[in-house]
Amino acid sequence: MFLDCNLEHAIWNTAEAAEAAGVTPAVIYQWKRRGKLTPVNKTGWPRYRALDVLRAEQSTRERARRTHEAA
């Protein structure tokens, strides 16, 4: 899993971000479109800071009044 890395410096592609957040890649693209996530690169396939992805996921769950259930 990706969460065993240094999250302050980790950069994830869309698939990695989706897996770590427990969502589909389509949700990552929605977060990007809605301004919840900003890619770190300007060209090519989007890459995201790990902490930004996890913050967007937490914010989404809090707004929906859901909690993350550990598997």
Rank of each mutant, 00 (worst) to 15 (best):
F2T: 11
L3D: 12
D4T: 15
C5R: 07
N6Y: 12
E8C: 07
H9Q: 14
A10K: 06
I11K: 04
W12G: 05
W12P: 07
W12M: 12
N13A: 00
A15H: 14
A15Y: 11
A15T: 14
E16P: 01
E16T: 03
A18L: 09
E19N: 13
A20K: 06
V23M: 08
V23K: 07
P25Y: 06
A26E: 15
V27I: 10
I28T: 05
I28A: 04
W31Q: 04
W31M: 05
G35Y: 10
L37W: 04
T38A: 06
P39V: 01
P39N: 08
P39S: 07
N41A: 03
N41W: 02
N41P: 05
N41F: 02
T43I: 09
W45E: 15
Y48E: 09
Y48P: 06
R49G: 10
R49I: 01
R49E: 05
A50V: 07
L51A: 07
V53R: 01
V53F: 01
L54V: 04
L54S: 09
R55S: 14
R55A: 15
E57P: 02
Q58I: 00
S59L: 10
S59E: 15
S59A: 15
T60I: 04
R61K: 15
E62Q: 13
R63C: 04
A64L: 13
R65H: 13
A70M: 09
A70H: 09
A70N: 10
A70D: 12
A71I: 00
A71V: 01
